[in-house]
């Protein structure tokens, strides 16, 4: 495994800045390492921006942030063609999407048209302006946030678009010690060291793809997919794409654990976050997330 210490360095560097969120940091890093997009669902002020910024900084990635509002237009994200009087021609003026980490704050406030412009970029790695396609250079990851409580005047993402996100995680309140440390900080957040580079991240993304997956683990993935499709739990089961994403996430987690093969515990760890936003409970009294946690726990770890 190349640079066993590299993983540990990155993780501890981020955890130095983002306090008491080691699990969320791990999930975010998994998304990043498997070229996935992350949906964070929480109320404002929980450190979403800090997390996104720190992630970008640590890998030396170009970071942009867009605050989604209900009057945001697709062009505000993708960019637009502007008439250049000196050259007498239209010149493409790239929008914030031309970055490497894009923080899309409160994505559900923007109208669907704007949302879909972003989602096209996420899925296709390109934007189309006035019929002309512009490629986005990888690495490119979106970290979108969504406020689950304030629903008035929002446009909740339909499930088909939720599917574009690899994971959805809550941030949650920090633990008491972490919060104390946060309060005791004299200055602004400490500067984070840049340990990697965009090239390095691409290399990591390639490496995670090659993490070995044994037949047993594939069986377990299928078992989980099958379980979500059983009647009575959810309105519909997980799609094959969700299964691919689950496996990719497990591979990335194995990489971060400096392992070159996937173990069932990897699946256990990523499954609820990967599956949670893609499923709807079959009845009111059932809780999707709790159901998924139980399924993950029931997974045999030494199968």
């Amino acid at each position: 495994m190349p640079g066993e210490n590299f993983q540990r360095h990155i993780i501890s560097e981020i955890n130095r800045v983002v306090l008491g969120k080691s699990q969320q940091v791990e999930q975010a890093l998994i998304c990043l390492a498997s070229a996935g997009h992350l949906l964070i669902e929480d109320i404002p002020g929980m450190g979403k921006t800090t997390l996104a910024k720190t992630l970008a900084k640590v890998f030396g990635l170009a970071f942009k942030r867009v605050q989604f509002t209900n009057d945001l237009l697709p062009a505000d994200i993708t960019g637009m063609n502007v008439f250049d009087t000196t050259t007498q021609a239209f010149r493409f003026h790239p929008g914030p999407v031309f970055s490497q980490i894009l923080l899309a704050d409160e994505i559900n406030r923007a109208p669907p048209k704007t949302q879909s412009a972003l989602l096209e970029a996420m899925e296709e790695l390109q934007v189309t302006v006035d019929g002309q396609s512009h490629r986005l250079e990888p690495p490119f990851s979106v970290i979108a946030t969504q406020n689950p409580l304030e629903m008035a005047g929002t446009y909740p993402l339909p499930e088909s678009q939720m599917d574009r996100f690899m994971m959805r995680i809550p941030l949650g309140y920090p633990a008491p010690e972490a919060e104390r440390a946060l309060l005791e900080r004299k200055h602004r957040d400490p500067e984070v060291q840049t340990l990697g580079s965009p090239e390095k991240l691409l290399e990591i993304q390639q490496q995670t793809r090659e993490i070995h997956v044994s037949d047993t683990v594939l069986d377990l993935v299928q078992q989980l997919l099958r379980q979500t499709r059983e009647p009575g739990r959810f309105v519909h089961g997980l799609s094959p794409r969700a299964g691919q994403q689950l496996l990719r996430a497990a591979q990335a987690r194995a990489w971060w654990q400096t392992r070159d093969f996937v173990i069932p515990e990897d699946l256990q760890q990523v499954f609820p976050a990967v599956a949670g936003h893609r499923l709807i409970a079959a009845s009111m009294e059932q809780d999707v997330q709790q159901n998924l946690e139980e399924m993950a726990l029931a997974l045999p770890t030494t199968a």
Binding site: H212, T216, R259, D260, F261, I263, P264, T302
Partner: peptide, 11 residues
Amino acid sequence: IQHWLQLRYGP
């Protein structure tokens, strides 16, 4: 344990 995991799930 790592070795065990390697044998069980590794290449």
